[in-house]
Amino acid sequence: MIALNVNGEERNVDVPEDMPLLWVLRDVIGLTGTKFGCGIAQCGACTVQLDGRPVRSCVLPVASVGARKVTTIEAIGTTPAGKKIQDAWLDLEVIQCGYCQSGQIMSASALLDRNPAPSDRDIDAAMSGNICRCGTYTRIRAAIKQAAKA
């Protein structure tokens, strides 16, 4: 049994230690908002936050999470930065197919959380690991800036 704190809830999961957090969330706990895109930390679709810091859950063995608090897209709206990001995302109609957007929003909220006024360079550093196949990049950039002003 591995103990996890996911979105404020204590969970005990009976899974192999090397199982990536992504699959624990999706297939065991049933939180499917976190997406699978590549499995090799190249696309960012699986981004969740550990104690507020974005990580790629597809390559994060569940046993290494430890006591750190896991926040997923399902709960990011309860954080001030997450809420601002979600609002800006809807305001600017960032989303197309939406599949990458859980990850984009998790990365963006973490950015806003640690940096209330991100520059273009800060956005490059925080967001370039998140691929969007629909090509919503320009709007993502604009929405982060709008959220920063909110």
Binding site: T32, G33, T72, I73, G77, Q86, W89, I95, G98
Partner: peptide, 17 residues
């Protein structure tokens, strides 16, 4: 506003996967 987007900012919508 798009009809399909609100559920896409909080993980609520379900894709096939």
């Amino acid at each position: 506003r798009r009809l399909d987007t609100p559920g896409k900012v909080n993980g609520a919508v379900k894709y096939g996967i």
